[in-house]
Design a binder for these strands. Structure first.
Lengths: 109, 109
DNA sequence: AGATATTGCAATCAACTGGTTGCCATAACG
DNA sequence: CGTTATGGCAACCAGTTGATTGCAATATCT
């Protein structure tokens, strides 16, 4: 399991780049942990499509699958990877601005 | 031009989800503004592929095309959209944590 | 004018993606 | 025991994507 921040951030970016995935995450945030079939009721896509997305989200660490009582698997949000991605973004933006300022110092008076 | 933060963030996520695109941005950050052919020398992909990526990056606002002297078009970094995306991420993470805490308050002692 | 370099556009291609349908294995409940 | 729900594959399909090659247009230098 590589804790490489860039790898984690990349997976978060991929996950958050898709509207359906954001909708799934939004539903989980709004109504709490849910199963794939629950989400299929709320969202306009099939359970299998949702299951695929949940697989990807779990891979990215944004969601955790918890086996429940009636053979149901409930998915819980995990915000940790998003914070990693956020810090990655912040570092990138800061780096860019620093280098741009440095260039300006060299070229301009 | 929609200033919708989510739309901007989505484009940033899409842009940053691709390694080649991150490499292009990295090269621009490291060596300053450059043309597509310049970048094609540094990176292991063709100029046309780079041009396509630059188009997408420009669409996302992460890069600005500045027509230069010898018909050359130099691309400059723009960090503003990244800061929007970063704040979008921060807001999401905060929202999740708030709701999770609220659920915990309801369910647990 | 001719040679060289640089950009833009189009076609093409393999791989990936988001999504659907269908089927099978369980497990709960009447 | 039969029915009903739930979840896990697997196949398949259309659209997108990352990347390539080829070529035309324009500009620069000798």
């Amino acid at each position: 399991m590589p804790a490489d921040p860039e790898a984690i951030a990349e997976q978060v970016f991929i996950a958050l780049a898709d509207p359906s995935r954001r909708a799934i995450l939004g539903a989980l945030a709004e109504h709490g942990p849910a199963t794939a079939t629950d989400l299929a009721d709320r969202l306009p896509i099939t359970r299998q499509a949702i299951a695929k997305h949940l697989g990807l989200l779990a891979e990215a660490g944004l969601v955790l699958a918890k086996p429940g009582e009636r053979r149901r698997v409930r998915y819980h949000l995990q915000s940790a990877p998003m914070q990693v991605a956020q810090q990655f973004l912040a570092a990138l933006a800061r780096d860019w601005d620093d280098r741009l300022a440095a260039l300006k110092d060299i070229l301009g008076p």
